[in-house]
Amino acid sequence: MKKSEKNRIILFALGAIIILLLPNVLSTYGIKLTSELYIMSIFALSLGLIMGYAGLPSFGHAAFFGLGAYTVALVGKFVDSSYVLIVAAIAIGGLMALLTGLLFVRNSGAYLIMLTMAFNQLLYVLFYKLTDYTGGADGMSVSVRLDLGFGPLTGAKGMYYFTAICLLGVFALLYYLVKSPVGRISYGSKVNDHRMKALGYNTYWYKVFMYTVGGMLAGFAGALYGYYNSFVSPDSIHWGLSGQALIMVVIGGSGTLIGPPIGAAVFVILQNYISSYTDRWPLIMGILFIALVLYGRGGIVHMGQRLWAVLASRLKKTGGQSRTSAEQEGYRNEAP
């Protein structure tokens, strides 16, 4: 539908403008926090991609994120160029995802979860133990600074704009990927794998492809995180972080593109903000998470959609009613 396409682009532009104007109303602290939010949004999006659009629930996605971050830290000792380092992080994340994807993607459900988690922990143990190279449990500083060719980006605002542009770029990229034939086939395979195979598609390769893209994006987010934090520790490659990303995707709403960033926002805000008032923020997060999964109707985005549908149907009475309830039907079938 051309009209909705145009509307989406307008909305995207609107969102982009707001994002780019935000630094003017935020404090330095707020700017830094929001930069972190954008980075975690990219990470959450990468997991949301493979979970929501390829049906690959992974409990080990932090493996690629951590690899990206450590790449910047380690290779950054020898190479200064930010372009080289970021590309290296993406490449390594993608390569590792490709290799493990080839082996793991054939499995589903419990086995996939266990395999991804095991691989994640394997990397964690390696990075944790190789203290001489990685600083072990205490982590290592990232000595390189982000430099895109016009001087090092040291200020909070510089990092903000960079991460914001990265997020917008990733978002746009994923939008077209998901709409593309590859994306649609992967989604079809998530909804009903047998049907897609019956139609003649070799779903295995589509899943591997999506998994690799997910790994590349996670590596990208990890690299950004390395620059942002100037510090990397095994926490960035621990399966607990994979779990956090999972929480973000589910809370925000799996199977949508806006969902993961919203989930990331909720998580980062709770983590940074609420932690100053109460230590019990993981408890709040956990209960919210369980409630959402239990209720089974998706995350914040899905709830928002239903809310809107209800409002819209009240306004439009009969005409809109049938259309919106049919849309509701469609969403009910989408399990995380």
């Binding site: 707001i18 806006i258 919203i262």
Partner: peptide, 20 residues
């Protein structure tokens, strides 16, 4: 399309809240 609107409004609201 309306769903995207809701979603973006939510996102912006959240950012504004953190801003304030």
């Amino acid at each position: 399309m309306k769903k995207q609107v809701i979603a973006i409004i939510l996102l912006v609201l959240m950012l504004i809240v953190s801003a304030c």
